[in-house]
């Protein structure tokens, strides 16, 4: 038991080291460094609010918070899965030379996405205060929403990482798919603008579900219905198991392939 926890601590250390390297690589010479993680989602939100309230003529109460909630969660999914997808290929040298368990590399990318999300939450909290959103107990459910999402992202990331080793073009396909999800997750519009059939399809979109849960907790202040949780939980469970299975199968002779 103690040996196991010792191992776990070691892995956590490796993940942190790798994450540190990634942060350095991304912002090596930037003076403002990590602050960009706070600035970027904020500017993005402002732009989206201006453009989409003009183009789509949206009348959503507290549109800025509505949009930023969506953007932050979408970014978590997008950067988590995309990072994980590239994790094995990018750490080729490490993988071949060391005996670190391979899923550490996938973990690390999801961890990175999570940390980046925490940074963007700074701007989010400020926005909540400025727009006068009153704190309510249901906000405490948001971490649960994020936790389930992370499990799902991890599962998806594992699958993508394996595919990427054998079929590099997945990166291009996935990019397009995420673009579709960006428009299909009701980030900047409300569902009722869409045809009933489209609404039906969207209610099965896990990113949309995760965003909806967060919006209900933060903006509407009541407990999201059980169906939302069940759906999201099923996605997470299913893809986590599938991901772990594929990862196990797929990584057996991966070193040779790399």
């Amino acid at each position: 038991m103690t040996e196991k926890s010792e191992k776990r601590r070691q892995y956590m250390f490796v993940i942190r080291q790798l994450a540190k390297r990634d942060v350095k690589k991304g912002n090596s010479s930037a003076f403002l460094g990590q602050l960009w993680n706070v600035i970027n989602p904020f500017v993005h939100m402002i732009t989206m609010v201006i453009i989409f309230s003009v183009v789509f003529d949206n009348h959503v109460p507290n549109y800025p918070v509505y949009v930023l909630t969506g953007t932050i969660i979408y970014s978590l999914y997008n950067s988590g899965t995309t990072g994980a997808m590239k994790s094995m290929v990018a750490n080729k040298n490490f993988l071949v030379r060391t005996r670190i368990p391979k899923n550490i590399f996938v973990f690390e990318k999801v961890y990175m996405a999570f940390i980046n999300m925490l940074y963007s939450l700074i701007g989010y909290v400020i926005l909540l205060i400025v727009t006068g959103v009153t704190p309510n107990p249901y906000m405490l459910l948001v971490p649960l929403d994020i936790a389930i999402s992370l499990v799902l992202i991890l599962g998806l990331g594992k699958i993508l990482a394996v595919i990427n080793v054998y079929f590099a073009d997945i990166e291009y396909f996935y990019h397009i798919l995420m673009l579709l999800f960006m428009y299909g997750s009701a980030i900047f519009y409300t569902m009722d603008r869409m045809a009933p059939a489209a609404q039906m399809v969207m209610s099965f979109n896990p990113i949309y579900i995760a965003i909806t849960i967060a919006r209900i907790c933060v903006m509407d202040g009541y407990a999201p219905g059980p169906m939302l949780w069940v759906k999201l939980g099923c996605y997470a469970g299913f893809f986590y198991l599938l991901g772990s299975f594929i990862f196990k199968k797929g990584t057996q002779d991966i070193v040779a392939k790399l």
């Binding site: 930037a30 960009w36 600035i39």
Partner: peptide, 23 residues
């Protein structure tokens, strides 16, 4: 200036929405 990349990236993101691409 190392931040230039971030600054320009942000400007580009804003301009993308203000270039009349999809509306």
């Amino acid at each position: 200036l190392g931040d230039a990349k971030n600054i320009y990236g942000t400007i580009l993101m804003v301009l993308r929405f203000f270039s009349g691409l999809f509306y």
